[in-house]
């Protein structure tokens, strides 16, 4: 597993009480509900959760890229600066420079009609660097992203690259602005498994070498175990639990995390099939009262049906939203 904490305690971003309401057919739907976590500098934070749990909406809220009509509340403290009240031009200025993004589908992030060299160098050209300096830096970035013979690839178009190479080009593009924070939303789900592992290793080494921070969104617990220092587990738009990755995955403090961990089979040894959770993941528009997880929770009691558990510290650095977290930890 990745080291449980990074070298630095400086906070880059403090997310507190983040809420996102999206306009719904009848009424607004709260898709992100009181989400709080920190991103320390030089640290990878993982967002885990099932489809529709609000991972993408949380990540997109950080950079102000939400669907039309979205209402955002809470606080995003970026090195002492409140982002939610910052001007639109300040937030645009942040994007691509201080905060860069990598998405699931590299094709969607690339312009099919422009060369790789041009796209990776875009942000550098706008900063007024000379042509030769831009070229030199682009070659360096492509090399850093693991693209072989980078100088020869400047004139290539995206369609000439394989899926894995495209994602590397996107990574080079994201690094061009020299960001402090990289948002990576399912950066490898569209890639072949054998390629996935290589891209993840690359992201991890870039994070370590450049000392930048990463918010990695994934539903793949194995990926998280290898790349994230800290994880935030989301369920139905809320934080179920968070803490150092090795602690959370080895000794979950929330029954939902427990079930997720139990459902990941070992690769090299044959494991028995897991006892699956009943029912289907709750959705923000159809959120059960009390603890949203109660209809599926093996430990649910009467209290869980009526009282929503608050996110509370159960051990140093461990936060969980379960009335009976201590029982889960001891199990």
């Amino acid at each position: 597993m990745a080291e449980s904490s990074s070298g630095s305690d400086d906070l880059l971003l403090e997310v507190s009480g983040l809420v996102v309401d999206l306009p719904g057919r009848v009424r607004a739907v709260r898709v992100v509900d009181e989400v709080s976590f920190d991103i320390p500098s030089a640290t990878t934070v993982g967002l885990i959760g099932e489809s529709g749990s609000g991972k993408t909406m949380t990540a997109n809220a950080l950079i102000g890229l939400l669907p039309d009509g979205a209402i955002v509340g809470g606080s995003l403290n970026w090195r002492g600066e409140e982002l939610l009240t910052a001007t639109a031009s300040r937030r645009r200025g942040l994007r691509g420079h201080e905060i860069a993004m990598i998405f699931q589908d590299p094709l969607a992030a690339l312009n099919p009609t422009q060369t790789i060299g041009r796209q990776v160098g875009e942000i550098l050209r706008r900063s007024g660097k000379s042509r030769a300096a831009v070229r030199e830096r682009v070659v360096e970035l492509l090399d850093r992203a693991g693209i072989p013979a980078p100088a020869e690839k400047l004139g290539s178009f995206p369609h000439e690259f394989s899926g894995g190479m495209r994602q590397r080009a996107v990574i080079a593009m994201a690094l061009a602005g020299n960001p402090s924070l990289l948002l990576a939303d399912e950066p490898t789900t569209a890639l072949d498994v054998t390629v996935q592992a290589r891209i993840l290793r690359l992201l991890r080494s870039i994070q370590e070498d450049a000392g930048l921070s990463m918010l990695l969104v994934s539903h793949d617990l194995r990926v998280m175990a290898h790349v994230a220092h800290q994880v935030v587990v989301m369920y139905a738009g809320r934080v179920a639990e968070r803490g150092a990755t090795s602690d959370v995955l080895r000794q979950p403090a929330h029954p939902y995390t427990r079930a997720l961990v139990d459902s990941v089979p070992a690769v090299r040894t044959k494991t028995a099939l897991a006892h699956p959770l009943p029912g289907t993941p709750a959705t923000p528009s159809n959120r059960p009262a009390g603890c949203a997880f109660h209809p599926r929770c093996p430990l649910a009691r009467e209290r869980c049906r009526t009282e929503q558990p608050a996110l509370r510290a159960v051990a140093p650095g461990r936060w969980t939203a379960c009335h009976f977290a201590e029982k889960v930890l001891d199990a």
């Binding site: 597993m1 592992a197 290589r198 617990l221 175990a225 290898h226 995955l249 070992a266 690769v267 090299r268």
Partner: peptide, 12 residues
């Protein structure tokens, strides 16, 4: 073996 090498384990 190479497929196995590329596969991540949850606990390792």
């Amino acid at each position: 073996q190479s497929l196995l090498d590329a596969a991540l384990e949850l606990n390792s």
